[in-house]
């Protein structure tokens, strides 16, 4: 399995991860190595085997739908890089 630098760019865009030109070629090489090593999985016959997402069958844990106190707003915002009027402040999403 060979990942091209273009594949790396595409995946980085999906992951919202800025990468340098150096990252692009290094990741293409290293990720290709890792994927190559994992090719053995493709040779396994898994017909009719159901996938395991979680090992124990604990499903749909329910609790009473009762409102409880949560953290005060100022504590939640205390770690925010930017805040304004009690909200998280973000960069512009739409052009003005």
């Amino acid at each position: 399995m060979n990942l091209t630098p273009e594949d790396v760019d595409h995946v980085a865009t999906l992951a919202r991860l800025g990468i340098t030109a150096e990252d692009r070629s290094r990741f293409a090489e290293q990720l290709s190595d890792v994927l190559e090593h994992f090719r053995a999985l493709h040779a396994l016959d898994t017909t009719g085997i159901s996938p395991t997402a979680q090992v124990f069958n604990i499903h749909s844990v329910m609790r009473d739908d009762v409102a409880r106190p949560s953290l005060p707003r100022e504590q939640v915002l205390a770690n925010a890089p930017r805040q304004e009027d009690g909200f998280f402040r973000v960069q512009a999403v739409l052009e003005t």
Partner: peptide, 10 residues
């Protein structure tokens, strides 16, 4: 595929 092999490992 990995999740299926996970079943087999378990």
């Amino acid at each position: 595929k990995a999740q299926q092999v996970r079943t087999l490992i378990k």
